[in-house]
Design a protein around this nucleic acid. Structure first.
Lengths: 341, 341
DNA sequence: CTGTTAGCGCTTTCAT
DNA sequence: ATGAAAGCGCTAACAG
């Protein structure tokens, strides 16, 4: 049988309560007793049973992450591994586990959050918030502590980790304009996602109209399709900003197949920078939103929420635009680019 | 208060035992009773408390993954996200959670496995097996069900998911020889890892000596350093095979900085293909070991192990070599490559 | 500073 | 086919 707290207590000549307190520090224990208990635990190879302690105590030492998406998307999108590694940087220090569940329907998602609330995790990090998101009231009802990523405003009872991506969109447009572009398109993500919406809104605000705005769904396929659609306009754009890199890479590859030179004939930029962007040919300009740091902040906030030291919402460090070859070298109209011969 | 099984029982006019059996099918329940219980549960928003059921029953509906490495490595190495997405493809169907813990020391790793064994998870998947791996006897002692990835032989009481990567090394060497290469180097991973060792062993077997074998550690830095070392030999290699892509990409980038043309002056190939390889300039030849499928198989095996239908060890589909520009176009010695002018 | 004990919410015999 | 009740291993409130 696996050792229980009673075995350790017997071995150390104390009671279960004492052993318990040695491990959670909820009351002072004399040094020699502490030592005896530690020695006994080590000798027997005892670790607290997480289920029993969660059941009795109400802390699981785990945080949850419920992802509503196709498992394949996890493999393609580089945001997740980096975000998760950021979370783990914070969690591994504190020996907190990450309880991850991928679901494929709303009912499964509800069940998953319910089970998190009912003893699986002390709290959750919520990603990909929608503009009208059922999960926020739902989590409130469940009284499940949560950190909301990238919500546009504060929600009572929740803390948030925010990011200002509208600003980056403006900078990107300015940069392209400075290079002489006047027809700048945007391939957005689904506009019911807050992050996609904010980028698109900033785009429309800066450009002044939505003539060249197209709504994609973050997949390579939609990046390709919408690029093709934009390029076959009678008056096509000379620059396209994509709301993520998967779409941008697909767009670049499509444009090159069509014989367009990047950036001379078409400039491209994306959001959610990752290592691949620097290695493309030409390298892709993109916005680094700092996913690792955001993951770390999310975990840090959540740990505090769980500890009942209710933290203020924070804003992640401003995104950084990595300017690369895909937006360089556009000459002002009328000029003649030497490479153009 | 969150609803408990007692609330549901009361609401449905039955006992707790009956509710329990409706949910785990451990004994027949009449249809009408079943319906009443289901309705009551839905009405109250009840889901079984995972801790209580694990404590009483002994199943957690979670599988564990303990990773002993720097969190950053998770972000760089594309193996993990893809492997995990493969696992999730299997787990999400069965509503099984993934309990993930990143640790930074052996003692933390032991604790993590102990806590998995003591109620965190029904079993674990073990990655990055060493040639002499303390975890195997340790897990046996803990009686924690486990699936071992890429072990060279069977271990009594464990099932394994294997892969034949030695064969790919041979093919790669043959391919390079066919293109006229006679000085073929290998930058391996740490040789105490089974996967790195098997590749290196196949290399030595095929080449006949270890003159051009260098031991790296899977980081970009070591890829760069060892490439530099190999290239400054008085009789340097004309081709290098790396044990992972991080090292290969770093090597390619270093070689190009030195003014070498790939593949004319130096051919390169790596293991652990990922999307980035196809987008490099030139695209990198590499071995696709099918991480998603291996993740799926691991999860599938583990689920079976946990269900006590002890499955045979399986071998994953053979790796596929993606031949790309980084190994093409080497002319036989003496010939004159037109591009060489 | 330490001992005692009543649960936490569920599963599972043993009854009926 | 269902009910009753004894724990699973731990925490925390109550004693001392």
């Amino acid at each position: 049988m696996r050792p229980t707290i009673a075995d350790v207590a017997r071995e150390a000549g104390v009671t279960k309560g004492t052993v318990s307190h040695v491990y959670n520090g909820h009351r002072p224990i004399s040094a020699p007793t502490k030592e005896r208990v530690r020695a006994a635990a080590k000798k027997l190879g005892w670790v607290p049973n997480a289920n029993a302690s969660a059941l009795a105590g109400h802390h699981t030492n785990a945080v949850g992450l419920v992802l509503h998406k196709n498992p394949d998307a996890l493999a393609v999108d580089t945001f997740f591994p980096v975000f998760i590694s950021g979370m783990q940087a914070e969690l591994s220090q504190r020996q907190v586990m990450l309880a991850m569940q991928v679901v494929d329907s709303q009912s499964a998602e509800e069940r998953a959050y319910r089970s998190m609330a009912h003893g699986r995790a002390d709290g959750v990090v919520v990603l990909d918030i929608h503009r009208k998101d059922w999960r926020i009231p739902f989590l409130a009802k469940l009284r499940l502590p949560a950190v909301l990523m990238d919500v546009p405003r504060d929600y009572p009872g929740f803390t948030a980790v925010r990011i200002d991506s509208g600003r980056s969109m403006e900078e990107l447009v300015d940069h392209l304009r400075a290079q002489g572009h006047t027809r700048i398109a945007h391939v957005s993500g689904p506009l019911d996602y807050v992050h996609a919406y904010e980028r698109a809104a900033a785009y429309v605000r800066t450009i002044g109209n939505k003539e060249l705005l197209r709504q994609g769904d973050f997949t390579a396929q939609s990046g390709r399709r919408l690029t093709s659609e934009l390029l076959s306009l009678s008056y096509p754009p000379t620059a396209i900003i994509y709301s993520n890199n998967v779409m941008a890479i697909a767009g670049q590859s499509y444009a090159q197949e069509q014989g367009l030179r990047i950036p001379e004939d078409l400039a491209l930029a994306g959001f959610e920078d990752d290592e691949i962007c620097a290695h493309l040919n030409p390298p892709l300009t993109s916005v680094d939103t700092g996913p690792a740091e955001r993951g770390r902040l999310a975990a840090q906030q959540l740990v505090q929420v769980v500890a009942e030291t209710f933290p203020e919402s924070v804003t992640a460090p401003a995104p950084v635009i990595r300017y690369r070859g895909s937006t360089e070298g556009k000459s002002p109209p009328g000029d003649c680019d030497p490479r153009d011969v």
